[in-house]
Each structure stands twice: as structure tokens, then as C-alpha cells.
Design a protein around this nucleic acid. Sequence first.
DNA 1: CCTACCGATCGGTAGG
DNA 2: CCTACCGATCGGTAGG
Lengths: 193, 193
Amino acid sequence: MKEAPTRKEQIEEKATALFKEKGFSATSMRDLATVLGIEAASIYSHIRSKEEILHRICFRMAHEFFQAIDAAEAAGTTAAERLTEAIKAHVQVITKNTEASAVFLNEWRHLSEPSHSEFLSLRDKYEGRFREIVRTGVQNGEFQVPDEKFAALTILSGLNWLHTWYKPSGKMSPNDIAENLSAMLLNGLKINK
Amino acid sequence: MKEAPTRKEQIEEKATALFKEKGFSATSMRDLATVLGIEAASIYSHIRSKEEILHRICFRMAHEFFQAIDAAEAAGTTAAERLTEAIKAHVQVITKNTEASAVFLNEWRHLSEPSHSEFLSLRDKYEGRFREIVRTGVQNGEFQVPDEKFAALTILSGLNWLHTWYKPSGKMSPNDIAENLSAMLLNGLKINK
DNA sequence: CCTACCGATCGGTAGG
DNA sequence: CCTACCGATCGGTAGG
């Protein structure tokens, strides 16, 4: 049973769609008001500023990604298993929140200070979690990579285009997608190994 | 010997940096004028509109990517070789034009019709070139992938984060980077193959 | 949640 | 390339 969303949640939801589609700067409060069926001034009864909406979206998503990887890292024993789980977790967060993920990935630069720096620091910490899994794998002989940071960022960027095309109605389920991505990133394209 | 840039080229160059940093919508013609040391109105002696600048950046980069992959595809005999060359070519275009690449990748959605559709169609054609290499590799037994389109897009997205961190002064050269990316994407992380 | 409105800023033009 | 300016629109506030 889904509870009826509060007005504030409705505002955030519609704003997320607009921010993804047109970008934060190109989305006006009048655009948002039109979609909500109210006047622009009325939005300010529920939120303090346009940036507050962006802030809430970005930091909520950051929180979701951390929660997901916390669970994932506890799951596996080998580095390969933990990386596979981390990939699956990341894919699940994106596929469950495609629009918010797009905003999280593309619009954070419109946060002003100090939120901007805080966001970047969170993102860096999250990347560090992947880096750490890769490092362990290299140390115990499971992985072979040119550079741990480089590898972690390549993996993440290989996951982060998902929001551009994923549709719940598609033929691949989130778990299918995660498996395919893990296979590609862990084993590569080549057949003779 | 580099020729002195025309005013139009200077405008494009400064606009590229601003569009990358602040985004197209959040960049005003006054911002651009300030950087150029002239008045906003004076910019219009050289360009027709703000969008024209974006258009020129996006389509020039599209052209660069196509030129690069044309050369790359002629080079190799096996699919693996051609993919490696295509990756190298793509990396070279990005590392030579980090700011314009960022604009090409992130700001194209602010193009109005019909440019918007034309751009997407070019991008799709470019992705098709990678898809085609992957397909050949699968057909002749070199590659094993879950889905050709999926694989091509994962590869490209694994290359397209480069513009966010590459600096010419860094310790990896563009060729080092290309080799590392090819190794990761073709062979995967795992050591026991 | 609305009406009424604010000062600031936007992309762009006219005319030199 | 500048001065002078346009109408439109922006995020946001006052007061109910």
C-alpha cells in the first residue's frame, strides 16, 4: 500500500522529471507550477527555494547509493563476489530511480556552497568504496588492473549511463542488466581467456 | 605554428569553457562578454545567437569523433584490433578537447529542433560503428557478449567519463589511458581467464 | 494556495 | 565594438 504523497513529495517528484528533461537551470518555477496545476508562488509554501529541491534530490540519492553498497559489501567473501554485489546494488538504485539518478549524476554542479563541496565529498567516498573492493581483489590475486582508481571509475562510469535508456518495460530486468554488466566488466569481451 | 584565433574562434573557445563549467542555460551572454573583455551586445557581431555557439561546438565534435573512428577502423584486421584502435581514437579526441567533449556529452539537449534530432541521429550512428565492431567480433568468435548494443554502449560510457578528470599534466598519456581502457574492457578485471 | 508584485537579469536589436 | 534599450521572464516575497 503506497501512501498518498504529500504536496512536498509531489513537488519533488515533478521537479525531478523536469530537472532531468530540461536541466536545473532551464527549469523555471513556473514550469514546475504548471505541471503541478498551481501558481508558482504557491510552491514556496512547501519549499524554501528552487535549490532546496535540487539539494533534497541529490542528497537523498547519495543516501540510497550508500545504503545499497553497505548491504552489498556485507554479502560476498571474495572481492569478485563483493564487486558483483556492489554492481547489482548500484544498478538497482538507478533502475528504481532513473529520473532522480539522472539529476544526481548531471545536476549536482548547480548546488551552491557548501552543499556543492559536501556533495563532491560524498561522491568521492562512494567511489572509494569501489576502489577499496578493487584494491582487495588486486592484493589477493583475484584482479589485475592498470590502476585501482582508474579501474573503479571506469566501472562506475560503465554503470552510470543506465539511466539514459532503462525502462521498466524493457526486456532486461534490473538483475539481468546487473549480471550482464558484471560479466562484461569482470571478464571482458574476449572469449579466449 | 598556430595561427591567431579569429574573434569568432575566441568566442567559441571561451563559451566552451563556460558551458562546461556552468552549463549552457546557466551561462549568460554577459558572462561570456566579461570573459572576452567586451560588451554582451558586441558578441552578436560575430554570432547569430547563443544557441549557434552550442550548435557549432556539438557538431564540430561529432565531426571529430567520426573522423577519428574512420581512421581507426581502417587500421585493424581482427575485431579486437579494430576495437582497440577505435578506443584509442575516441580517447584521443576527448583528451585533445576535454572541454568541448564535456559540452558535446552534456549540453546537446539544449539544442532546439531540428538540430536536436540531427545531433541524436549522429550520435546514434557513431554508437552504431562500435556496435558493428562488436558484432563482427561476436560472429567470428573473438568476443562473447550478452548483447551487442548493450556491450557497445557500456564500452562508450566507460570512455566518456574521461573528460571529467583528464589533465594533460597528469602521469598517464592519452595512449597510456587508451591502453588501460582497452585492457580493462577487452580482458576484464579477473586474472584467471 | 492565490493575487499582486518586486528588482534583477535574460537574449537580443537598433543605430551608429 | 559600444551605448542605449527592448519585452520577456526569472526566483522570490507580502499579505491575505
